[in-house]
Design a protein around this nucleic acid. Sequence first.
RNA 1: GCCGGGAUGGCGGAAUUGGUAGACGCGCUGGACUCAAAAUCCAGUGUCUGUGAGGAUGUGAGGGUUCGAGUCCCUCUCCCGGCACCA
Length: 942
Amino acid sequence: MQPIYQPKDIEINAQQHWDIRNTFRATETSGKPKYYCLSMFPYPSGKLHMGHVRNYTIGDVLSRYHRMKGYNVMQPMGWDAFGLPAENAALANNVPPAAWTYSNIEHMKQQLKSLGLGIDWAREITTCKPEYYRWEQWLFTRLFKKGIIYKKTASVNWDPMDQTVLANEQVIDGCGWRSGAPVEKRDIPMYFFRITQYADELLQGLDTLPGWPEQVKTMQVNWIGKSHGCEIYFPHDMETVGSGGMLKVYTTRPDTLMGATYVAVAAEHPLARRAAEISEKNELANFIAECKRGGTAEADVATMEKKGMDTGLFVRHPVTGEKLPIWIANYVLMGYGEGAVMAVPAHDERDFEFATKYNLPVKHVIASGELLDVWKKLEAQFEADGYELNREDLDTMGMFAYLSIVLMDLPTPSEALIEAVHEFAAQLQLESPNTQYGTLVCSGNYSGMDFQEAFDAISTYLTAMGLGKKRSQFRLRDWGISRQRYWGCPIPIIHCFTCGDVPVPDEQLPVVLPEQVAITGAGSPLAKMPEFYMTTCPQCGKAAKRETDTMDTFVESSWYYARYASPDCATGMVDERARHWLPVDQYIGGIEHAILHLLYARFFHKLMRDEGLVQGDEPFKNLLTQGMVIAPTFYREDAGKKMWINPADVDVKTDDRGRPVGATLRADGQTVIIGGTEKMAKSKNNGVDPQAIIDQYGADTARLFIMFAAPPDQQLEWSDAGVEGAFRFLKRVWNFANAYENDLHTGIQCMRTNANPVEWKAATKQTLDFRRQVHLLLKQANYDLCKQQFNTVVSACMKLSNLLESNLPSMVSSEDIATYGLVSVKEAQWYAFSEAFSILLRLLSPIAPHITQTLWQELGYGDDILTAPWPEVDEAALEQDEIELVIQVNGKLRGNLRVAKDTDNAALERFALAHEAVQKQLEGGTPKKIIVVPGRLINVVT
RNA sequence: GCCGGGAUGGCGGAAUUGGUAGACGCGCUGGACUCAAAAUCCAGUGUCUGUGAGGAUGUGAGGGUUCGAGUCCCUCUCCCGGCACCA
């Protein structure tokens, strides 16, 4: 055994040990229950980052743990290889995206291997290879024929200078990232997946996923956004816009219909366009053009200043027939609902803001709480004074406007009436809308109804009149997958002048993406390659043009989990092995994928199910969403510009209590400014290269630190000092094994010769106590592993190590020997000692596999720790006669009490009252009551 | 703006789900070893107060429920993730 812990040697040896034996090759014929453990595959950006290390370590810990628990584990790995960064790299360094991607994969694969991950590399998938994407194209053609994929126009970011479509990421402050020109919205034809057809199933399916975090399910529920409401038709005079003379809106608040004071349409709405056409002035056309400015990202649209313009046109209120103005508003989204809303400023935030800005009327029609009370009082006072409220005026003018004139018209209003009006006016919130449900007021026949009654009554009326109906609505939109980019999977469609859009026939698949191209940054290279796009129509044989758009890279990542089951299948997307491995038992990935990727993959699973390719409704049984890795930032200011400095080049000074007081750049000793702790990113230069950590301390240390520093679902703050702490711990374990090699051997012999554990009753109290603590720690660790809280598992290992160091086997007193005899005392002690160390090694092995494998083998526990059974708690070891209780007075800790474990409550109360500290607190008085929590505490209440 | 999450010592975090707040680790302070340093080992370490035993106080802020609240409820502040063409 090496005297000094040298991670480099032992890690290479351990990895070879597993390589030679093909340990991680997963087969379908093991006879054990399967466990498919999948970590989200990386985009091959060039180098592994800390987020990857965290993700794959979590996956590997779960894989190794389950393997030792007796499962047939499959842990695959692959590359999400298509995407924008490859094209950016091509522009910056003049390398073809394919070559750049393949060389990145080569490097990152070596890095992953050095982490010691138990991956079945025979199942490796690379999405930019035709063997993979041909099946995606195959499925596309099936779905196109079924109508699940269709074509329509949609808005994209357009850079007018570079004449190219931009990703949201490439739009910075409303301008193109390269040209700097203001971005516009442009409508282009695109292919869409009809995901909305599966909206209800995607929603309901969430209820069948108890192994998913609640927060992810909630986010998906809200994203799908099923709402119940009404569509309502507002008649107008614009017959020419093809809407049958009706403006259709959708609302979840039909109860507020009587409070609608205007309607608003999106700039792209046909009515807006029509209004601009017939208007004599250019204002409307200019405003619509202005709305075209800026990108398409929802966050930008939603934070924009609310702007609008009156079209000069009107609709009729479907109940009152009143004329309501039609406005064009930039806060109305064409993509949601009908691209038009009825505006109820009194009861909607955005409508209120808009109405206030443009001085549109506000009509209160919902009252609740005190407002409702004072309104009823006011109505009653009018009646008492013998006046009649003009309901019609009230309904058209709104309460506030009506009341402000009505008092003037009354000849002799009573004091009580004036007071009631003032009281009401004070309650009426004029500065903010009331968006809560309540009772309808000033709503004609509907006054007095609650939300549900009004909802039903109004929708019934609208249905009867042909002016609307109840309907539910999803926020989810169909998934547009066309990208005007090169480095992606070609869309397998041929455009024929006679036959239209024709899917590429199976025998012509795959449509191979040419790998030698010139990237210019303006437009798609494929559209400039006749050798790619010139073809013939598969149906009529005439000359035709191949589609040059590629697919959203989310399409590849939506089904890769299924391909891992049969990565080499040349006859279909998947084969019968998918039935064996799916669903994925544990999926692990970043929380940033909570919505899009996970929703698309669930959708794809259902598409594949409906094609008869896979079974079951959901692809991922259990989900673990890991938090991000963050690190401190440092910078210097130079002419107002921040120059970010990497944490690795900075020394932080602290005061004598460890508080940071300043930082200097190591190179020149000059001061740098300490910034916030942020997500590791190139832009803040605060990334820590995992390779440097692995090279210096070894993979086990990197893995141990990353698992110890935070629970997996929380964000993790990087700390170099913490890494050293992790290394120190592993060194301690190594040194301990070295120092007590002989004792451990002796103990292992005792474990071997005692098939049934030694007679523990012959052991000393000290040994029994030691063993109880060991098994208590094991119990805690096993509990935490079930919770997937790995940081406290590491903590348990450290405690176990501390415990071992303070309970060395040579410490047997002469009294013990006299009582029990030397052989049995020693034997029990050695047994407990070696058992404890074997528990430590096994608990630690999923996290730090190399050092534990090496020690397991060298100490003679066995040949391969992965084949050792997972340690289970010996419940008998936990038993004890005495327990410690806490004594509280009024909930405050005042003392402890050791009692026999079966002491009854009455006795406990007596002991507590007799306790010195309790006596002192009581000062001779008697307690009001005593609360006894069995096994925990006694609280004396005075 | 909307949706989701978070906030506990100098720092990362723990707290068996309403029952001893600060486990474990880092850092820091003191000591041992050493010619010296590193490494290692031992002790201490929330804050205030007290010579001490002890006492008070303390989980982002403010209120509430409870014998008892880091944990439950209400209001607020700040930070992070997502927002459909980054992956």
